[in-house]
Design a protein around this nucleic acid. Structure first.
Lengths: 118, 118
DNA sequence: CTGGATCCGGTCAGATACTG
DNA sequence: CAGTATCTGACCGGATCCAG
């Protein structure tokens, strides 16, 4: 398995990337790795996400089979989102990105500073 | 090292994600893993990218210290983009995503089909 | 060949209000 | 609590033209 030398508009990589390459998706998946979380709880934990965006993000994740939604008809209703086995494998991959970010953020910021100084 | 339970608007993860969470960035990085590539060559290999978007993407990547740009003053000028050591570590991480995509695209598509059928 | 500058239509995302 | 509906301004990205 090695890197292709072209990326066709609808190769698997592009199809997946077009779907998950937004920050909310990645953040939601990462948080759900810790166990089931309810809607508003998720909203609180992801700083700056609007309820509209979170709603859309979760719906897409559910459609892709990466997250499952369970509503219990209490009053008021409570909804729990949890990661699916498939989603968990993706989240594990994505977590590598988070780790990279935490390890290398300083190098990136330094590079930006150097670049902007010119 | 474990997953945080909140994502602050300017935590490292968010800062990095806000920068690289677009398809062009990821695809360009992946392609540059194979060695230096020139502008138009890159353009051809990434199906559908406009020169404007590619230009912007490469400039951002250069600013972040992930890619280096080398112009040789031939006539006409030729410009070669190559990945930096820092960029290579990110690309390796990102490649995990590409691999995941290729392995699981069918499961995702099947899930979508199931979801849409309802 | 490798871009920058500009214009412009479409989409996205925030704000707000409302529902079960 | 967990969303949906609508409206609107901002931004993105494509097309085109131009320059070094």
């Amino acid at each position: 398995m090695h890197i292709p030398n072209t990326f066709d508009a609808n190769c698997p990589t592009r199809l997946i990337l077009d779907r998950i390459a937004d920050k909310w998706t990645v953040l939601a998946l990462a948080l759900l790795m810790g166990g089931p979380v309810r809607f508003n709880e998720l909203r609180r934990r992801i700083d700056g996400v609007s309820q509209k965006m979170l709603s859309q993000t979760l719906k897409s994740l559910e459609r892709d089979g990466l997250v499952s939604r369970k509503a219990t008809p209490t009053v008021p209703v409570t909804v729990e989102y949890s990661i699916t086995p498939l989603g968990a494998t993706l989240a594990a991959t994505i977590d590598g990105l988070r780790v990279w970010a935490e390890c290398n953020i300083n190098d990136v910021l330094a590079a930006q500073k150097r670049y902007d100084a010119v």
